[in-house]
Write a protein that binds this DNA or RNA. Structure first.
Length: 444
DNA sequence: AGTAGAATGAAGAGTGAG
DNA sequence: CTCACTCTTCATTCTACT
């Protein structure tokens, strides 16, 4: 089982020796986790100054002054409560919801211990637990609006670049505990070269990227990469600064990698799967365009799994999940890789390709009950109520609502939360509130 | 009906000099 | 503090072509 969950045979054996052959799978996973974290800290202290700096030394000089200033503002905005969960009540302040720098959320593996504590009101702690996700850089004021609709809980902004080799700036609002989180193991490759060592030989010294930019839904055309290749072949080595700049601009814009002499190319779908924490070929079976699209719209599994890891101790017998906007199942893959059994998943997803991908993964890996629903609009409160009585409630309501009208890449209809697609957020709110009130009424 | 290619910037945040 | 500048961004729409 441990090997199937992605641990090495060696690690599994050591854990079994430590804990005994009849130990619970959760105990074994914890054991491997602990030893990996210990190892990771050890090696980092010796070699990785960059991370160490960010960890411990980033509060000096001007940065400190700025952070102090930030926290002053925050205290003012949040009424001096110190926990940062409740906005001020006067409503006179503008809707500022500053993004943290570095964007590491409440805490991340390898970034010292839990740096933040928070207190949630009893009304907010559930059941059920809920987990909401969307792009961090939404238009101004939109995250304040999202937060207002989700019990004024402060978003946790994380750039997955701190956990894997590609950037992914996202905001998460959830009512999960934030202490005693544990990362998915093995830890994902943290740099481009760790993820793709075989490309190192083609990587020019003047391309200093260590991380990729955000994986999006479209990729560069072969004609573009051809043009770049021709430009490089017909210039000196190394090329003049102007050519370098043009090439680098395209590489960053389109997330290109060096796959041959003077040859760049977009990531293959299976390489995106790797970066996002999915099993290889997870999205295989649909057209390439669909694979790119659904991967670009997906969770970064390791990031989500880190947040969800606290559920493992709380639900040793598995969880009942209401999964809205399931997509290719990033949340479910995270739970599975954490070793958390899914007794029930009600999955709402409208995309045919995504549904096919998710169903195929489920059939291969899961034994629980899966119920699929096409449209979130057709999941009426009555239907939710009948699911609640059928399964006795939900333990987790999870989903990232459509980002189309929030995302910076959208030139045409970046209309904010009220946009055609992104307005489905309010169905997430509707359903979550209904589940909460129904379960509270039945004292589940 | 589906795919590939190309064109379509603004918005915010961060940075560093002055 | 201002100001100029750099950087990044879960995308949409139209066209040409199988």
């Amino acid at each position: 089982s441990l090997v199937n969950m992605g641990f090495s045979e060696d690690e599994a054996n050591r854990a079994i020796i430590r804990c005994g052959a009849d130990a619970d799978i959760c105990v074994l996973v914890d054991s491997v986790s602990a030893s990996r974290v210990a190892e990771d800290c050890h090696s980092r202290n010796l070699s990785d100054h960059q991370v160490t700096d960010r960890c411990f030394n980033s509060f000096g000089g001007r940065k400190k002054a700025r952070l102090m200033e930030e926290s002053r503002k925050k205290r003012k905005r949040y009424g001096g409560g110190g926990q940062g969960n409740r906005p001020s009540l006067d409503g006179s302040d503008e809707e500022s919801m500053p993004l943290p720098n570095p964007m590491v959320g409440f805490n991340l593996p390898g970034y010292s211990g839990s740096s933040v504590t928070r207190m949630l009101s009893k009304l907010d702690t559930g059941p059920p637990f809920f987990y909401y996700e969307n792009v961090a850089r939404a238009p101004k004021g939109e995250w304040a609006k999202i937060s207002r609709n989700l019990f004024d809980i402060q978003p946790e902004f994380v750039d997955s670049l701190h956990l894997c080799a590609a950037a992914r700036k996202r905001g998460y609002i959830h009512n999960l505990p934030i202490e005693n989180r544990s990362p998915l193991l093995p830890l994902p490759p943290k740099t481009i070269f760790e993820a793709f060592p075989h490309y190192k030989k083609w990587w020019p010294s003047w391309d200093t990227r260590t991380h990729l930019n955000c994986l999006q839904t479209c990729v560069a055309s072969a004609k573009l990469t051809d043009r770049i290749q021709r430009a490089l072949v017909s210039s000196s080595n190394p090329p003049p600064k102007s050519v370098q700049k043009d090439v680098m601009d395209e590489c960053k814009k389109w997330n290109l990698i060096w796959v041959g002499k003077n040859k760049v190319a977009p990531l293959e779908p299976h390489e995106m799967e790797l970066l996002l924490g999915f099993p290889r070929d997870h999205t295989r079976g649909v057209g390439k365009t669909q694979r790119y699209k659904s991967l670009g719209n997906s969770f970064q599994v390791d990031t989500v799994a880190y947040h969800l890891s606290v559920l493992r101790r709380m639900f040793p017998n598995g969880v009942r999940v209401l999964s809205l906007f399931t997509g290719i199942g990033g949340g479910e893959v995270a739970l599975h890789k954490l070793g958390i059994h899914m007794r029930v998943v009600i999955s709402v997803e409208i995309g045919e390709a995504s549904k096919k991908i998710f169903r195929s993964w489920w059939d291969q890996t899961q034994t629980g009950t899966l119920i699929e629903i096409d449209d979130v609009k057709s999941l009426t409160n009555d239907r939710v109520a009948s699911f609640i009585s059928q399964f006795g409630g939900f333990d987790l309501v999870i989903g990232g609502s459509p980002c189309n009208n929030l995302a910076g890449s959208n030139r045409h209809h970046r209309d904010g939360l009220e946009g055609k697609h992104s307005a489905l957020f309010y169905d997430y709110v509707r359903i979550l509130n209904f589940v909460k009130s129904t379960m509270a009424g039945r004292r589940m």
